[in-house]
Design a protein around this nucleic acid. Structure first.
Lengths: 176, 176
DNA sequence: TTCGTTAAAGAACATTTTGTTCTGTAATTA
DNA sequence: TAATTACAGAACAAAATGTTCTTTAACGAA
């Protein structure tokens, strides 16, 4: 990839995140982004067809980091759901600004991505829950409540240690 | 209130809901709304300052119906959380289109209102949960998971009876 | 019914945003 | 060094925004 392309892409991502700290997603215009990133209008459109696709690309980039299972103190065995959740929380806390900005944004666009990835994880562990409710209800409940837990945790400034948050969450759901 | 005002307000609300069935909230323009409602541009702006405030007003109107506690087969005693949740689900199913459209919209603006009201209800019952997690964590978890349950239920076409959904939900959270 | 009030339509407007097309420049890679 | 390609900048038509004005007609109260 051309160095210039990488540089421009980075500038646009940074500008976008910076704007998200101050403005709601749907109030940010392409004009805002190119002003903040200081790139030409044509340059923006040659990289991203629309603002929504810019968000897509940014989410894609950030999620590689959150959901990869290497180089993490909690990447224990595959049956350790609590460990996996801790892992996710660790990564979110590490990649300070960017992800926080997206998660706390009131428009729910980012959460869709987050939930999609979460669903895949919970699906692997769904059989360890012994409770008499439909599987799809349970799965939805787990994904929804965990993503809201993350949101709560970030709003509170991520003061509670990741492992403890994961612990709270498991207490709410397991061993009925 | 002037009959003309009521008529116009209704037309704008209807147009807005109708558009939300087809388009995402942040892709809907004021122009779309006035075209669909067939009202003048000045008329729109004399009623609502911005598109966001139109959403505010609509949410306000819809929530009067959902969260009022009269005339409902499930309005049992005040300690009956499951009954209250059933109540809410009944009202959502009754007011067919409008609320469904708002809840299923991918932008999370409506959900903010919904959660705020839900929080008030769960707060009244928070002491009946005997579990060793912080109160604010628990409250957030309940509000988040129930609102996602509603969303799931609507996505599935509200086939499951309200009482059963409320039952599933209580199973997930009570009697640890 | 009459009459003062007021909501709404419509036109016109400046401004901003959008998305595209062009040309010239300069950074990059081979 | 030479060919390539990303970018800036300008210019553009189209759409959306938000405001101001005038005219029409529906309204509620007497």
């Amino acid at each position: 990839m051309d160095r210039r392309q990488k540089r421009t892409r980075r500038a646009i991502f940074d500008a976008f995140c910076s704007l998200l700290e101050r403005k709601r997603y749907d109030h940010i215009t392409v004009q805002d982004i190119i002003d903040e990133a200081d790139v030409g209008r044509t340059t923006f459109y040659s990289h991203f067809e629309t603002k929504d696709l810019l968000l897509d690309a940014l989410c894609e980039e950030l999620f590689c980091h959150i959901f990869e299972h290497d180089s993490c103190p909690f990447s224990g065995n595959d049956n350790d759901l609590e460990g996996k959740l801790s892992h996710i929380l660790w990564h979110i806390r590490d990649s300070k600004k960017d992800i926080g900005v997206l998660i706390s944004d009131s428009s729910d666009l980012f959460m869709g991505y987050f939930k999609r990835h979460l669903r895949a994880i919970f699906e692997l562990h769904i059989d360890s829950f012994h409770i008499n409710v439909p599987k799809d209800f349970l799965l939805n409940h787990l994904v929804g409540s965990f993503s809201d837990t993350v949101r709560w945790w970030m709003r509170e400034g991520m003061k509670t240690p990741p492992e403890r948050v994961a612990g709270y969450f498991m207490q709410m759901t397991e061993k009925h």
